[in-house]
């Protein structure tokens, strides 16, 4: 185990940000940490990195017991913060020199690492520009680069792709994969389940400060395999229709978003026909599918809500 926590509790006043959180990250893997806004992902990262002190519980970092006073432990850790945290007054290159320098990289080695890292994130041509002149995606890439100059063994990324264009996003995901091929262990936080599904070898799902599930994608999906998800699009949507779906026997959750409904039913309910019938009583149906469960469904089943607010139904 390269890092992890056992029963970690952290409170901010009345908010229980971490509620007995336990998980482990093994060498060479990408652990995806998934959770909606406010789930406690950043708090996990900050306690793990020793930036804030946990109220109780055991934390392991780089194979050693975490201790906020032991700053040496951080030598092989890289942190990509959720916000873009680079120096406005410094060029891309100088930013990298700064962060490399903090880890004691110097001289030729530093020069070489800065060059490599700029290439790695595709910013070589912009080395002499200040971040204020960058697009959102370029700033994100610089933000990542700053955590890589010292070649960390263990890299933590806190929502590195939030709010950027699809091109930069896939560039970043590709880079992340290359990093693991080079032997870096990764903790990757996101609330985009497609990302986590695409790159993570194991996944931890958090909600309201608790770990609600963990395992490989297959394990997580098989946990809810006995449940069925039906997606249906109707011509005449209404809240009343959602209520009708909810009344069908075996239905656990109904999500309603415009003309689309997502209906999750319990094991072996075989509700496809019933859902179709109910819908047709209220108008025509333009589309209906019974889905193979995805990570999103795992989340939906476990929490009764969607991962991101903007996608949540009425």
């Amino acid at each position: 185990m390269i890092a992890g926590m056992q029963n970690v509790v952290k409170r901010f006043g009345n908010v229980q940000a971490l509620d007995h959180v336990s998980f482990a990250i093994h060498e060479g893997e990408i652990l995806g940490l998934l959770g909606p806004n406010g789930a406690g992902k950043t708090t996990v990262i900050r306690t793990l990195a020793g930036l804030i002190k946990a109220d109780s519980g055991e934390i392991t970092l780089l194979g050693k017991k975490q201790d906020v006073n032991n700053i040496r432990l951080k030598q092989h850790l890289g942190l990509v913060t959720q916000e873009v945290t680079v120096f406005e007054e410094l060029t891309a290159e100088e930013n990298l020199r700064y962060f490399g320098g903090l880890y004691g990289v110097k001289g030729d080695k530093l020069r070489q690492r800065v060059k490599e890292t700029l290439e790695f994130v595709g910013l070589s041509e912009h080395a002499k520009k200040v971040p204020g002149k960058f697009s959102g995606g370029m700033q994100r890439r610089l933000n990542i680069a700053c955590a890589l100059v010292h070649s960390p063994k263990f890299l933590i990324m806190d929502e590195p792709t939030v709010g950027i264009d699809p091109q930069s996003r896939s560039y970043i995901l590709e880079s992340v994969k290359r990093l693991t091929m080079e032997g870096t262990t990764l903790l990757y936080t996101s609330n985009y389940m497609e990302e986590v599904q695409a790159i993570a070898s194991r996944i931890v799902i958090m909600d309201q400060g608790k770990v609600i599930a963990s395992g490989t994608l297959d394990e997580l999906v098989s946990r809810i395999q006995h449940e069925e998800t039906i997606r249906i699009t109707v011509s005449n949507p209404s809240v009343a229709l959602a209520e009708r779906f909810r009344a069908i026997q075996g239905v656990k959750t109904v999500m309603h978003n415009g003309a689309d409904y997502t209906i999750v039913s319990g094991a072996g309910s075989d509700n496809l026909n019933r859902v179709l019938m109910v819908a047709q009583q209220r108008g025509s149906v333009s589309n209906i599918v019974a889905d193979k469960p995805t990570l999103e469904d795992v989340f939906l089943t476990l929490t009764g809500k969607k991962l991101r607010d903007e996608e949540a139904g009425v």
Partner: peptide
């Protein structure tokens, strides 16, 4: 500039490095 580091959250990153 110390205040700016604190407000932008850059200190978080500085203290994620082995810096007291």
């Amino acid at each position: 500039s110390i205040m700016i580091d604190r407000m932008t959250g850059t200190v978080v990153r500085i203290f994620a490095a082995p810096v007291a």
